[in-house]
């Protein structure tokens, strides 16, 4: 069975490079991201919830989390036990589609 962890990251958001570095941290350990949800405040404080799982079975989950915890801009990482993900929903009226450089209403 694939191992999964749900984590909460408290961080400082300066630009999307934060997400890039977090994703790269898990990529380097051959881990996958199941879902993620981020909320950034005007003052830069930011909470990120995400699921990471070890499809490669290299056993890097613990190491990846503790390594992430020492990255500049990360205040701390919490591993959430018994966490349940309620599917994120969004409502909208209309969309504009971008497909390989072509825009359509």
């Amino acid at each position: 069975m694939t191992q999964e962890r749900i984590i909460k990251i408290e961080a400082y958001y300066r630009d999307p490079g934060l997400v890039e570095r977090i994703a790269a941290n898990f990529r380097r350990f051959w881990l996958d991201i199941g879902w993620m949800h981020m909320e950034a405040e005007e003052n830069g404080t930011c909470s990120i919830y995400m699921s990471i799982y070890d499809r490669s079975k290299l056993g890097n989950l613990d190491l990846s989390i503790i390594t992430l915890s020492k990255m500049v801009d990360i205040d701390f990482v919490e591993e959430l036990e018994g966490a349940r993900y309620n599917k994120f929903e969004i409502e909208y009226n209309k969309s504009k589609k971008y497909e390989w450089g072509v825009v359509s209403e």
């Binding site: 490079g17 890039e20 790269a24 380097r28 500049v72």
Partner: peptide, 14 residues
């Protein structure tokens, strides 16, 4: 520069 630098540094900032 940031995209190139992130994986090879302790930190990179614009």
């Amino acid at each position: 520069t940031l995209g190139v630098s992130f994986p090879v540094t302790k930190y990179a900032v614009e």
